[in-house]
Design a protein around this nucleic acid. Structure first.
Lengths: 140, 140
DNA sequence: ACTTGCTCCTCTAGTCACTAGAGGACGTAG
DNA sequence: CTACGTCCTCTAGTGACTAGAGGAGCAAGT
């Protein structure tokens, strides 16, 4: 309500790039703001708050659809906790899964790079990649 | 040289889906194999080896371009180690970077889900996402 | 010979979350 | 009045596939 700002300033205030803000509007994550006579978007304080919410959620690795749900839940001050909590827990499980997978990969790639490096034609990197039996785990 | 197989069998033997094999051929990761009179691809042992190499590298999280380089290096038995080792080490650094970032995210999302759950209108999930000051770190 | 069912072919378009660029209009400071 | 920055819309590109349409080849059974 204090003042409405153009998209560039909304971008600076939220840390979201200008084309990305327009993209969020296009996919309906952000409501279409009013325009000036010159057809330029004008964002108010609520829009900026929403943008910062989105940015923070994206930084935490939430995908767009969960963010859409979280925004809907944040909109109604009654019982947001169950739904929001479920989404956050699902995301946490996803993060744990990714960390576990990357840790397994790390181990194998590290083993691979333990190349004696003096030997020339028997490179562990190439060898390990070529020989499937060298692999520790195949799980996704 | 033992026998050439059609794409479906190459898929089963390598664990790479049929459309993906065709895609690899399209982007030049895999040479175009000879065809039967009926225009069907025929893969020999070297092709299957290459496919398994690619699959294993993909499973370890290598991207296509690094794999392309690794395949080129594997092709010449002289001095493959320096280049291959560099690629593998770069990938390892990338994995470490991702793990570090995910670990930081995990901490924050976990903190977020420590919701007392009895309180209704003050949900930590929504609150943390809305309030930027709650954030521990902003780094990418 | 015919049909059934599987595999194969090419081609296009869709995924996710943007990003880049073209080509143009507006707004303001000098 | 001109220069520059900001804004507009629209299209296409990214990576690494995946899905589907629409059709042809091929082997086995009737």
């Amino acid at each position: 309500m204090l003042k409405a700002v153009p998209i560039g300033e909304a971008s600076r205030a939220s840390g979201i790039k200008v084309p990305t803000i327009r993209y969020y509007e296009q996919i309906g994550l952000l409501p279409s703001p009013p325009r000036t006579e010159g057809n330029r978007r004008l964002y108010d304080g609520a829009d900026l708050k929403r943008l910062r919410f989105i940015r923070h959620a994206r930084e935490l690795g939430f995908e767009i659809e969960p963010i859409r749900e979280l925004l809907a839940l944040a909109g109604e001050p009654d019982r947001p906790c169950e739904g929001a909590d479920r989404i956050a827990r699902a995301h946490l499980a996803d993060i744990d899964h990714k960390i576990a997978r990357l840790t397994a990969l790390r181990l194998e790639v590290a083993r691979m790079t333990e190349c004696t490096h003096d030997s020339v034609s028997d490179c562990r990197v190439i060898e390990v990649l070529g020989d499937h039996g060298e692999c520790l785990a195949d799980k996704h």
